[in-house]
């Protein structure tokens, strides 16, 4: 036996392993730090407006004219906040039934030869860039709406385009959740002589509930944070909309429109709206995650 070749102390590999582990930990620290870094930069850049203007004035000022600075300008973000919430809520309302039906179509109603390509189609819809949706909305949907009710660029256009964009998220999540329903439940329902809809509404959908809810929440997060599509089809007027045919401006569109020339307190105010968005969306993501976790435990 070759005792001589055996290393006496710690081997070469042992040292290189240490190095590897620490390098990988470094990668982990860096990627983990990105979110923290984003939060830190948003807070730091927001600081000017938060201290100069104060949080309250973002809700109580008479209008949005921030370029004159903290003293003379006005900083009311409420119409934009409302624009964001309304477009996102509308999109979720439209996309949830469509997405759910799409999932049911794939998993239950369509024959295999149709279900497969339909699922591919949903995946492809998910891959189309938001700027393409926005452009299509701008040149096709907006003129279409304008024929019934000018100007066309409106809350409605935003809701429809956003709904199309988040539909795949809901459909794919619901599809995955339905596929996870234990077969014994379905066999039990069949043994009781339940019809197809009775089985779905009474057994399968309740069992898939948390997966579907997670999908809807994540889709809502996407809708809240979407910029390009709403920027291109919503008209971007800073006003409270009186109907779905009125134009709106979302927080995201506001940032995209004004960031190019904003300086000082104005720029800082845009970071404040970014901070709002980050908090809103992170809250939704963590909520979705806690639903997911409860499912694992229960």
């Amino acid at each position: 036996m070759s005792t001589a070749r055996r290393p006496s102390g710690r081997s070469r590999q042992w040292t290189s392993d240490r190095l590897l582990v620490w390098t990988l930990r470094g990668c982990g620290v860096l990627t983990g730090a990105v979110v923290a870094l984003i939060a830190v930069f948003l807070v730091v850049e927001s600081f000017g407006a938060l201290s100069g203007v104060g949080l309250l004035r973002f809700f109580s000022d008479p209008s949005w004219h921030p370029s004159a600075g903290a003293a003379e300008g006005t900083f009311n973000l409420v119409p934009m906040l409302l624009g964001t919430l309304l477009t996102a809520a509308g999109a979720v309302l439209v996309a949830t039934p469509l997405g759910l039906f799409s999932a049911l179509f794939c998993r239950v109603y369509a024959p295999t030869a149709v279900a497969r390509p339909y699922r591919r189609l949903i995946e492809l819809l998910a891959g189309i860039p938001s700027v393409v949706y926005g452009f299509w909305g701008l040149v096709v949907l907006v003129p279409l709406i304008a024929r019934f009710r000018p100007p066309g660029a409106s809350l409605l256009a935003g809701v429809l385009i956003l709904a199309l964009m988040i539909l795949p998220t809901i459909a794919l999540a619901a599809d995955a959740a339905l596929s996870g329903v234990p077969r014994r439940y379905l066999r039990g329902a069949a043994a009781l002589g339940l019809g197809r809809w009775a089985t779905l509404s009474g057994v399968a959908l309740p069992a898939a509930r948390s997966g579907i809810a997670t999908g809807v929440i994540l889709a809502a997060g996407r809708a809240l944070g979407e910029t390009m599509a709403v920027l291109m089809v919503c008209g971007n007027v800073v006003e409270m909309p009186a109907s779905v045919f009125d134009p709106v401006r979302t927080l995201t569109a506001n940032i995209a429109l004004e960031m190019a020339y904003a300086v000082g307190d104005h720029r800082s105010a845009l970071f404040v709206s970014g901070l709002f968005l980050l908090v809103l969306v992170s809250g939704l993501v963590l909520a979705a995650e806690s639903i997911e976790r409860r499912k694992v435990v229960g």
């Binding site: 990627t31 990105v34 944070g225 995201t252």
Partner: peptide
């Protein structure tokens, strides 16, 4: 705990709106 923290922050990162990435990228 460290792994969980990294995972959680990646989940949040995946949801961050792209315009916020734009703000952050511009600032940093």
């Amino acid at each position: 705990a460290f792994g969980r923290l990294v995972r959680r922050s990646l989940d949040v990162l995946a949801g961050v709106p792209s315009i916020v990435f734009g703000l952050f990228g511009n600032a940093l």
